[in-house]
Each structure stands twice: as C-alpha cells, then as structure tokens.
Design a binder for these strands. Structure first.
Lengths: 191, 191, 191, 191
DNA sequence: AATGAATGAGGATTCATTCAT
DNA sequence: CATGAATGAATCCTCATTCAT
C-alpha cells in the first residue's frame, strides 16, 4: 500500500545517493518517481522530512538486520562467541551492502549532519551502541584486544565502509574479497 | 591580493566542511572570509572552481606529505620495511588529521563526485596508486598478507577514516588511541 | 495556463520595445505581466527564448499578412501587376504598423543580432526573399526599374521604416501621409 | 593628445555597435581599448557619459559634414538647386557610411532613447531640422514634390539607412548601387 | 594618470513550497 | 489523492563604480 510513497522513497534514495541531499532538488525526486512535484508534499511535509524518512528507513533496516538474531531487541546473545558475532555482523553488513548498494552509499559515504532530526540521530546512536556492546563483551570474554571499544568499532566499521566504497567506485571487489577482508578485520580486533 | 585568495580558501574549507559543497551558498563563504560576494569571483571563476581549488590544495598536501620522505617523486624507498613504511604513513595521516581536522573532514567524510574536475580526480588516483604500491611492495617482501592490495588499502585507509571521524564527532579519542590503532591496523595488514 | 503565456508575450513586447532586449531585466517583464518572476521560467526556458518567441510571433505575423493573399504559401500571384502588389504590401505594412505600433517598433527600430536563434533568422530571410521576389517579378514585367532587387527592397522597406519611426517618435504623421508616401515610394521603384 | 581617451572612444564605438549600448559591459570596453577598467572612469564619469560621448562625436561629425559647404553654420546655400543639394547630401552620407561603417551602424541601426542626454538629443534635432529645411526650400523652388517635408525626409533618410544596413549585413552592395539608389531616391523626392 | 582589486546592488535562473483545480 | 502552475526567496554570477596604490 501507499505505492506512491514507496516510489517516492525509492526515487529519493536514488537521487540523494547520486547528488547528495543538499545537491538534489525536489523536482528531481518527483521526476525520478514519475509523479508531480506537488504530490511529494502530500506524503512528506518538507524536503527535510523526506530526507529523514529515507535515512531512517535504511539506517533502521540495517540496524534491524544487525540485531535481528537476538530478537530485534538489540540485545546481545550471551552465548555467542565474539568471533561468531563478528562474523555474523560482517555477513549482515556485506549482504546489506550487496543487496542495497545505493542505500549503503547514501548512509555511509555522505555527511548528513545538516538535516537529520532527533529520530534519525537516535538510530545512529543505537547502532553505535550495539556495536560497542558487542566489542565490549568480546573484550570481557578475552577474545578481542584491549582498548576503547569505541575506537575498535570505528576502525572495523571504517574498514568495512572503505571496502564497500572501493567496490561502489568500480574497483573489482568480489565476494571472495569480502571474505578475506573479514578475516583481516578480525585480526584487527582479536586479541 | 594574494591574502584575499588565502582567506577565501580558508573560509571555503570551513564552510564546505560544515555544510557540504552543495549545501553552502557562495555568500556564506564571502561572509566567513570577510569580503564581498563579488570578490570571490575575482579569484575563482565559479563556485565549482573554488571547490576544486580547496579540494586540490588539501588532497594535494596530504599526498605530498605521504610521499615526501622519498623525495616527493612519489616513489617508494626500496630499503624501507613495510612495517616502517606503514608506521610512517600512519603518523603522517595522524599528524595531518590532527593539524588540519577540518581539511581531513572535508576530504574524507563527504562525497565530491558531483563537482570534481579532472585535476582533482588525478590527485585521488595518484594517492590511491601510491598506497597500493606500498602495499604491493610489502607483499613482495612477505611482510603483508596476500590478497588484492586495493582491498587492503581500502580496509586500512577506511579504518583510519573511521577513527578520525569518530574523533571529529566528539568521541574522546586521544593520541594514545591512534597509536594503539596503528598496531591494530598493522595486524589487519601483516602476514 | 495559456493566458499567462499570452500576458508574458504581451508584457515582454512592451518592455523590450521601450528598453531594448538587452536593456530589460526579467523582473520588469514579470511586473508588467503581473506575475512572479519565477512564473516566466515555467513558460520560457530563458530570457533569450522569450525574446525569440516575441520576435518570431510578430515577424511571423507580419510575414503571414504580407504573403496571405496568395494563400500563405508565400508565392506571388502571377496575374497581379507590380503596382498592385506594391500597393497591397504597403497597405498591409501600414495596417500592421498602425495596429501594432509597439510590435513594429520592436521589430524594426532595434538591433537583434545578439540573441536571435536560427528560427528567427529564418523568418527574416523568408521575409526578404519574398519582397525580393515581388520586385524581381515587377522588373520582369517591365514595371519596376532595373537594378539589384535587393537594393530596391532595402530602399523601399527602409523608407517605410523611416516614416513609421517618425510617426512613432511623435511626428504628426497621419493616414493621408502614408498614402502620399506610397505614391512617392512607388516613384522610387517604378521604371 | 589624450590618446587614451581616443582609444576609449574607439573601443566603445566598436563594442556598442556590436553588442548595443545596454548589451555592453564596461569591462568589455576596457579590454578592447587595452586599458584597465578604472581608467575609463578617469576619462568619463559614467557608462552613460561614455555612451553620449560616442554618440555625440559621430552624430555631430555627420551633421558637420552634411552642413559643411555652407560654412558649418547649418544654413542652406540659397543658390544651390534642390537636386544638387540632395546629390551632395547623398554623397556625404555615402562617404560617411563608407568611411565609418561601424559609426553609422551604431548611430542608425540601434535605439538610443534610454540613455541619450539633452546635448545628444539636440544634435538629432538639428540634423532633422537641417534636412527638413533643405526639403522645404526644394519645395519652394518647385523641385520637390508637395507634402509634409518631415515625411519626405523620413522616407529618404530611411531609404538610405535601409540600403546601408543591407550593405552592413553583408549584401553585395557596391558604390554603383549607391549611385543608382541616389537617382531612385531623388525620384521619390522630386516633383 | 593608470591600475585592478574590491564592492554590493542587480541580473538571470532555480528552488522549496503552496494551492486551485 | 494527484496535479502542475504559481510564487518569491534564494542561488550563482555580473556589473557599474570606487579607491588605495
């Protein structure tokens, strides 16, 4: 239902990814979605709201998938080893980035500070918090090296973004490379 | 005057970093630089030219510093171990990001595809090529793990960006963290 | 709406006539038409396009009326005497200039070289070609004096413009004067 | 003397002729003259003043040459036949337009209403008045046809402008054509 | 006198948003 | 719900003019 809304969110993601939020004009979204400009404003009160809707949809989905196996409550499975947790998260990230490359590009290769609202920022915080919790737990288990978990998350997540961006930019990066990378990044994390 | 051009480049960096290239209006740059709008156009033919000037200045300086010890010819010292080369590059990156945080943020946390010209793109290519060459050589020396060097560079550079971005976003990341991170990232790279 | 387009073409003619194409700012047209500036750009892609639309509309209408009696195909009635053809054309010109003085002033008292497009130039060529053909035929019939028909057309059309311009400038020139002038200009043309 | 002033008047004529007064930017004049923009303002207080200086120079010179033989007082030689007077004026016009085609184009193919000052307008009036006086006298002598002399002047001067414009636009119009035209235009004027 | 950098109002054009249909 | 014409503020850029050198 709300096929128009869906079309709009899809079109917006596409043009935001290509031109940046600030760099896209509302008529560009309308044209891409095949609707009139005015129609956008029946579904979203403003360009900013549309931007946040797109951001929340995808950042939220990514978070969901990352936290899914533990029931979506964003709690960590206490029995899972850090190695397994990392492997699972890496797979989820890879699957997400492979299935929705534009969405991942939009989320992670751009700067959103200028227009995100509280709700969007909350999802970011929850995402970081989850990753930090996983790393902390891994440290408690003695599987992950010592140090500020925020730093380790930043490094590991940054490494994943770096690889995805290279793939997105046209570098010949295949699934095998992502597997190898997983091992390398685990070496970055592990004790 | 030359001083005006400097002031403009400085102001443009500040405003572009904060608001994105597409998100900054030319008058914002003028105001920040303390000059009239028209003055900008005596020094740069267009907003796009100004954007490229800023980009080239900083990406170029970073490249220079990365390649400096070998004489600025962007050639690799054949006697240097991969470990040492990596350590030196990490230090340069860290020093650069610490001395010019806004410049690094502008360069690496944003998407520039929409307005960069050939010259700017060339600097990007040379930067990547240099890093790839360093990694390749490390692999030949048996110091760095096997795999596509492009992938390893993407991971390692991505990790550095991730950490810097965390620091820039306000996370309490100190010099010690960068040192620890250097070791962790070397573990990502090393055989 | 279509009415807005008409209002714009009317306002543009008025302002262009008074201030010259280059001398009129787009907001002047908007104000004269009673619409917002942005509205102009929903109907014409640029000031230049608006200028050409105005030019083509009026130069085209004049050409139409000049060539009308022979069916709009811009062909010359082979049975009409040159004297009659000239008289008819003079009347048409006079009627046109009397009914649309601003349009004639815009068309003929100004220089348009800087902004006219191919289509506009084509109408000019067709107008000249038609007049030249009429004169040539008159020469073949032995009614019009020898000499380059282009020259004769330039002289006769120039004379008409001169008279109209005088009238437009406020000189007390009435219909009787145009009738007398017709006879005088025929004396310029006739054998 | 005042070589710069001369260069400026020459450059201004050239660009005004090509682009129209309203269509030329002051820097274009400076560049054409090979001086800095600021220099213009040491010689002319404003663009408008420059425009009027150019206009007055050339319209004034044309008037001078037209009235010259009678001593520059713009009085008519009472002994000269109208035919001779017309022939002389036609020659002067032709010589002027041939020697200074750009000047004639600037003066007569454009609309100047928007920026001319009183002094410029005065020269126009004197030019018209002189031509009207010549025609009036020709009518008194019974050499020129009856009718408002203003109308006859408008027709004859218009015819000359028409022919010059054709030549200026690239039509192959030679001195012979101007001679033939003189005869034709005299047929327009003569009783 | 000459320069040309600087100015900021004004020019053409685009944009986010509204609203009558 | 959808439309797309209309709006006018805001955008990028240019212009006539000034002034320190």
């Amino acid at each position: 239902m709300h096929a128009t809304r869906e079309a709009l969110l899809g079109a917006a993601l596409a043009v935001f990814t290509e031109h940046t939020y600030a760099g896209t004009a509302v008529p560009m979204v309308a044209e891409r979605a095949g609707v009139a400009v005015g129609t956008i404003y029946r579904h979203f009160p403003s360009k900013q709201a549309l931007g946040n809707a797109v951001y929340q949809r995808w950042k939220g989905r990514l978070l969901e998938r990352l936290t899914e196996p533990t029931g979506g409550t964003e709690r960590i499975d206490p029995d899972e080893s850090a190695r397994a947790a990392f492997g699972r998260m890496w797979s989820v990230m890879h699957a997400f980035a492979a299935e929705h490359p534009a969405a991942f590009a939009f989320l992670e290769y751009q700067q959103h500070a200028g227009y995100l609202d509280d709700q969007s920022r909350q999802i970011i915080e929850r995402s970081t918090a989850f990753a930090v919790a996983v790393v902390s737990r891994g440290q408690q288990r003695g599987e992950i090296r010592a140090g500020d978990p925020v730093v380790l998350v930043a490094l590991a997540y940054g490494a994943f973004i770096g690889l995805s961006k290279a793939a997105w930019s046209g570098a010949p990066v295949g699934p095998k490379d992502f597997q190898d990378a997983e091992i390398a990044v685990w070496d970055l994390l592990r004790r």
